Simulated assay, not measured.
Amino acid sequence: MKDIALLTVDGRSQLRMERRLAHPPEKVWSALTEPSHISKWYPFPVAELELKEGGKVSFDAGDGSTFEGIITEVDPPKVFAFREEDDLLRFEITPVDGGSQLVFSHTFDDRPAAASNASGWTDCLDALEQVAGGADQVEVDNDSVALHERLVKEFGLDEGVVLTTGDGWIVRFERQLREPADKVWAVLSGGSDGVSEGDPVPSGFAHPGASTGKVLSAAKAEHVEFEWLNDGKPAGTVRYEFRPGNGGARLTLTQQGDTGSADLRDSALHAWHGHIEGLAAELFKARG
């Protein structure tokens, strides 16, 4: 059994992942807490671990440096938890007939990254199960991008929001993609590197019902901002921004409108949702 849920706990996002493992709690505990075992399933090798509350766990970042976490709970062989920067990772083991029930939670702030986090932890927990079973080498063969895209929809991370301002309204989307910004830019721009101020807006940047004016500002794979038109007149702006995210580019899209176009907010929200998800589907189809 593999259950994944995205919750909100004390105002923060929390992934909760539950596994039924065919290994006793002592074996799972060993896989969770012995440095040589952790290094086989965790994203970073463990350089040092003080297995006590308040103890430090040091990870090898892979570039010659290390970073540290602080252990927040130790109750062998039931609970192991530690804080990595502002994130809290907690593992709870319960004995069941034929093995163990493992409940893993990851508490964090960057909610748009939840699907990427969950797909990554799926690989880690699959590897952990193998380590608990005594494997010296682990093999994980999941389609993490397909899982990411499924979880984006299950978690509602594809949905945008409408904000009201003193001057009008804003439709906003923040979507984690699984390709780098240069590849996303190539799809949106039709392969053009030269999108510049004053140019017509490449069709890939506009949803099918949008009427657009001129590009106001652009930097390849970083941002583009352009006018949108209502009844042939400028009514606001659309802005794409790209920055590194968990597993690929993080896209933030905003459309601003004035009070005179308030009746278009809901249709804009719907149209941009379809456009962004169409982009994600095209990137998924073209991968590899």
Rank of each mutant, 00 (worst) to 15 (best):
S13G: 15
E26T: 09
S30W: 04
S30P: 06
S30L: 12
S39H: 03
Y42M: 10
P45Y: 00
E50H: 14
G54W: 07
K56E: 05
D63Q: 03
P77M: 08
V79G: 03
F80G: 03
E84P: 00
D86L: 08
D86A: 07
F91Y: 09
T94I: 14
V96S: 07
G98D: 14
S100F: 01
V103L: 02
H106T: 01
F108Y: 05
D109S: 14
P112I: 14
G120W: 01
L125I: 04
E129W: 00
A132V: 06
Q137T: 06
V140Q: 02
V152A: 09
F155I: 05
G156H: 05
E159Y: 10
I170V: 15
V171T: 12
V171S: 07
P180G: 06
D182M: 03
K183Y: 08
G190N: 13
G191I: 11
S196M: 14
E197M: 11
G198Q: 13
G204D: 11
G204V: 08
F205C: 03
F205T: 01
H207K: 10
T212N: 11
K214N: 14
A218Y: 00
A219H: 15
K220W: 06
E227N: 13
L229F: 12
N230V: 07
N230S: 15
T237E: 11
N246A: 08
A249S: 14
L251Q: 05
Q256R: 12
G260S: 14
R265A: 15
R265W: 12
H273C: 13
G278T: 11
A281G: 14
